[in-house]
Nucleic acid binder design. Structure first.
Length: 321
DNA sequence: GATGAGGAAGAAG
DNA sequence: CTTCTTCCTCATC
């Protein structure tokens, strides 16, 4: 059978133009009725030398795989306030020394939170890099990388289409833009994009300053891994699925192991997994129907099969990791 | 309606 | 040639 519906597209579905064209970008259809986050920069910020972090609970949006694994909002909520109006008063000299101790405890506490947040930021940038197949430093992004990052940011913050407003820009172009420039491109969401880019730039700057050992997290993620991976070979679907499965912290809501030893996994949110795969492959029209067809191609190849007891959305790697 | 299986054709590398 | 992607029909849950 032919594919009569394919010729209607004005340009090839594989060209970058396709994903950025306002009338042919299926990513953007869903976003229309979604209320985007507003005034990211208007919220209290936590900042310290070397890294700027906008209020994180703002980033921890529901249904957001990348952010789901990020710093818990309470971490910042628990941050001791340093403003005089909420600090306990010090009416006597005797209390001064205890305030000093409190101050030191506070400082240590702050340092711990700082370290934790920085670690989380680096880890999450790392995860996004793998997902999008882009390098972590925005300065090194090509136009295609920029578009991928923009699509990702749209997805992350549920923004309406903004990528179309930043066409033909490289990462270096993007980094040279001020917040005002961002607002010129997108009056409503320029600040969100600017803040998000700033996180990435800060993360890249942090990484440059710190030796890899210092910021290596306890799990298998590391910046050097990412650097070694890029530019990487085109990823296979089964590899991508394994990537997601290896990060239950981030993706267990959409895909998880039922029996890791046997390689049996379940796709919990088929639309979400398909969307992630689409982002990774730059295929905005990806859906579970197509993704599952690709999975079924693996039956013959002996890479993936249905488990002995077949269940909906449950598959099994023939050779478990 | 969502999912599953698989045929067919085409794109991309 | 391989690996999807896209579209399709039919079956099953």
């Amino acid at each position: 059978m032919g594919s009569p519906g394919r010729e209607h597209m004005g340009c090839t579905a594989h060209s970058p133009l396709y994903i950025t064209h306002p009338h042919t970008n299926p990513w953007l259809e869903e976003a229309e009725d979604i209320k985007p986050p507003r005034g990211l920069l208007g919220l209290p910020e936590v900042s310290w030398p070397g890294i700027y972090v906008p209020c994180y609970d703002r980033l921890a949006m529901e249904e957001n795989p990348w952010v789901l694994g990020m710093t818990e909002p309470p971490a910042l909520a628990a941050l001791p306030s340093r403003t005089p109006e909420v600090s306990p008063p010090a009416p006597s000299q005797a209390q001064d020394s205890s305030s000093e101790v409190e101050g030191q405890v506070e400082e240590r506490c702050l340092e711990q939170v700082r370290t934790m947040v920085v670690g989380e930021v680096l880890k999450d940038v790392d995860t996004a890099c793998k997902l999008l197949n882009i390098v972590p430093d925005p300065l090194d992004w090509s136009c295609v990388h920029v578009q991928k990052w923009l699509l990702w940011t749209e997805h992350l913050y549920k923004l309406p289409q903004v990528s179309t407003m930043f066409q033909e820009l490289t990462g270096r172009d993007l980094c040279s833009m001020t917040e005002a420039h961002f607002r010129q491109h997108s009056l409503q969401f320029g600040d969100v994009l600017y803040a998000h880019l700033d996180i990435w730039r800060s993360a890249a700057a942090m990484k440059e300053r710190c030796p890899p050992e210092d910021s290596k997290s306890a799990d298998d993620d590391s910046w050097s891994d990412v650097m070694c991976n890029y530019p990487s070979q085109p990823i296979h679907l089964w590899q991508f699925l394994q990537e997601l499965l290896l990060k239950p912290h981030n993706y267990s809501r959409c895909i998880r192991w039922l029996n890791k030893e046997k390689g049996i996994f379940k796709i919990e949110d088929s639309a979400h997994v398909a969307r992630l795969w689409g982002i990774r492959k730059n295929r905005p029209a990806m859906n579970y129907d197509k993704l599952s067809r690709s999975i079924r191609q693996y039956y013959k190849k002996g890479i993936i099969r249905k488990p002995d007891v077949s269940r909906r959305l449950v598959y099994q790697f023939v050779n478990p990791v």
